[in-house]
Simulated assay, not measured.
Amino acid sequence: MVKEVHDEGYAVVARSDVEAAQAEASSRSAHQPKQARNQTAFFMALAIGSIASALGFSTLQEKVFNIPGFTYGGWMTFITYLTYSACGLAESTVTRSFKRNASLRDYALISILAMAGAYFTNWALNYLNYTTRIVFKSCRVIPVMAFRSLVVGQRYSALQYGAGALLVVGISLFTAGDAEGAPNFSGVGVALIAVALLCDALTANLEERQFFRIRTPASHAEVMTYLSLFAALESFLVLLATGELQAALAHSSLHRETVPTICAFSVLGYVTVCLVLLLIKHFGATSAEVVKSMRKVCQVILSFLVFPKPMSWKYVAGGALVAVALYALQRTGKKPVGADAKEKDREGRKLGGGGGNAAVPPAGAGTGTGAGTGDHHAGGGAVGSG
């Protein structure tokens, strides 16, 4: 037995208890470095996995557009959405989460915007280099900022507006470089990608409000499944209306690698969304944004390496301005401490949840393609053009 001194006098403690406490403290200190190493390894696995899957997505998608005679963006949109819905259904089956929280009406209406974003993006690639498409889609933040001001009344600082203007200059320079070197460049492509960005921005804001800022938020698997099913149906109707279906089927019969390649990059796009959502869940949105920014840089570099294009100083200068502007927007876009809590409280009162206890995630927490998909499968939020 040993004695421990307290204010009241002496207390008798079993030696085994003291030794057990010391052993537990020693075990905790020994486990902390190991836990930190495990967290680092987990982060690296998620980051490398999301970058690798996104690079696979963009490389395979660009490969499809390099197949001789492929100009069937609507056909690609249709197959992509079918694949997304299959992936979402498979995930729901594995996790046994079949409950639908959002309304079918909202899925049907928002899917029109998501499908339009994907359709116009793929159509634009008949007139633009793939790298220009990546840069344009990376700058979705501009219309998103504009629509957030209109839809949710968000206010931005002068520095953020300045970064947005710099972003426009960077995009213009990069597009000018494309106009010099791309044999099929056309202003039609710029107009189409601009329309796609507007559709994506609306999709992102409406997805956040209708799917993730409700009392019981929808899972990303639910959103991917239902939104993709509606979008696939809508894109199929567009194929019939435009007469593209018959020509696309004939082309895919002649070039049999087309459909499997589209399915393959669509699966990779879905995987990318899941990994980015895990990054946000375990390491925060800032870490996820850093990984997504690295991914975009890698996608542009890989595109130039795998599918060589005429180099121009405008590509370099425009890309640098875009990178600086996006970094500035990311830094200035951080909320002050407690902002998320106040926002949750406001949303909770709106929903009648009695304050911050309502099941409402912070902005962007559940938006897969805000999460996501950034620039691949998911247009504005969980599903879209990428």
Rank of each mutant, 00 (worst) to 15 (best):
S219P: 04
L173A: 11
I193A: 05
G170N: 05
P217V: 08
F212D: 00
A196V: 05
V188F: 03
E222W: 09
L192H: 06
R213C: 09
A165H: 00
S186T: 02
N205E: 13
G181W: 01
R209A: 12
V223Y: 05
V168H: 01
L206E: 03
L173V: 11
L197D: 04
L198K: 00
E222M: 08
S186Q: 04
A176Q: 12
G187V: 10
G181A: 12
G189A: 11
F174R: 07
L197G: 14
A204I: 04
A204C: 12
G162M: 11
Y161A: 12
T216N: 11
Q160M: 15
E222V: 08
L159K: 14
V195K: 03
P183Q: 09
T203S: 14
F211K: 01
G189D: 09
L159W: 12
G187H: 07
G170C: 07
V168W: 01
G162I: 06
T203N: 14
F212G: 01
F174L: 08
T175H: 02
E180S: 07
A201P: 10
E207I: 01
A201T: 03
E207N: 14
S219N: 06
G181Q: 07
A179L: 09
F185G: 02
Q160W: 10
Q160H: 09
E180V: 15
F212R: 05
R215N: 07
G164N: 01
T203F: 02
D200F: 11
